[in-house]
């Protein structure tokens, strides 16, 4: 019986899978080097930082940075797709060695994980339908604004939004963008890169309303992984110096690495609205 064979084969496969589940993860660079592979978590739904390419492989700015770091460690890279809400749980539950997952450096997150020096930076703004007059946060009262749950957009918007703002939280940026394009929400909080894409997709339909925050993104490690963090910082400094990081930035974002990242002069806190 064919079905029976299929079922038996699947049962055998399940056993094999159980045997090959991911090994527990290292916290020191030595453990990673001994293992010969580094497991790095990254987003795959956050273009251009993390995407799946047409072959279905993780790609983008974060992927290239992750590969660069793996090269520096002298090990093979295993890119593990994570989602916005589960990326920190992934790290804390030992599924991965560290995150190169467009994770904005915030004080709240810094209590949970340790951050490297910034390797990328973005600006977060509220963007929405043209014709909507929203000059500042106070004008958001009574409006619906979409954001990706637990993102920097979410926290910084929540902080400045007045009473009566309807913040709609989606699982990722793409869903929020989809909601904007579908007309389900008139406004979303998004990064400059996402906004550039929306404008390419639907020219002359949406415009930027006001800035929410400047965000710098860091590599995140489990708390206390000082040795690992030191090596990552060292590699990032080198990559900034020899122009490799800049080349990756040019490739994916079409512009050079922002000065506040290259010189590491960005303020390490965010969440406050940009001063006007």
């Amino acid at each position: 019986m064919k079905i029976l064979n299929l079922v038996l084969a699947a049962g055998g496969l399940a056993g094999a899978l159980a045997a090959t589940s991911l090994p527990a993860t290292a916290q020191t660079p030595q453990e990673i080097k001994d293992r010969g592979t580094v497991n790095i978590g990254m987003l795959v739904d956050f273009p251009p930082f993390g995407i799946l390419n047409t072959e279905g492989k993780p790609d983008g700015y974060d992927a290239d940075v992750a590969k660069l770091l793996a090269e520096d460690f002298g090990v093979k890279v295993n890119l593990v797709p994570v989602t916005g809400p589960n990326r920190i749980p992934y790290l804390l539950s030992n599924r991965i060695d560290f995150l190169v997952a467009s994770l904005g450096i915030t004080p709240e997150r810094a209590e949970r994980v340790d951050f490297s020096q910034p390797y990328a930076g973005i600006e977060i703004s509220v963007v929405g339908e043209k014709g909507l007059d929203i000059p500042d946060a106070a004008a958001l009262a009574g409006q619906s604004v979409g954001v990706a749950r637990a993102s920097t957009q979410d926290t910084s918007l929540t902080k400045v939004a007045p009473e009566g703002t309807n913040i709609q939280r989606f699982d990722d940026d793409a869903s929020a963008v989809q909601a904007l394009i579908s007309g389900q929400v008139p406004l979303i909080g998004a990064s400059n890169t996402v906004i550039a894409q929306i404008q390419k997709l639907r020219p002359d339909t949406y415009d930027k309303k006001f800035d929410l925050a400047q965000q710098v993104q860091g590599v995140a490690v489990k708390p206390g992984s000082d040795e690992l963090l030191k090596e990552i910082n060292q590699y990032l400094t080198e990559a900034k110096k020899d122009g490799k990081l800049n080349a990756i930035h040019e490739k994916w974002l079409g512009q050079p690495l922002p000065d506040f990242i290259a010189d590491d002069t960005a303020p390490r806190v965010d969440g406050k609205p940009a001063s006007k």
Binding site: P47, L52, G56, P81, V177, Q178, I181
Partner: peptide
């Protein structure tokens, strides 16, 4: 799909996130 396993639904979400043609 919600815990991140790329089966059919997650594959659809990923493609939709790149094409915006729900």
């Amino acid at each position: 799909s919600i815990i991140g396993f790329v089966e059919m639904t997650r594959a659809g979400q990923i493609i939709n996130n790149a094409t915006f043609e729900p």
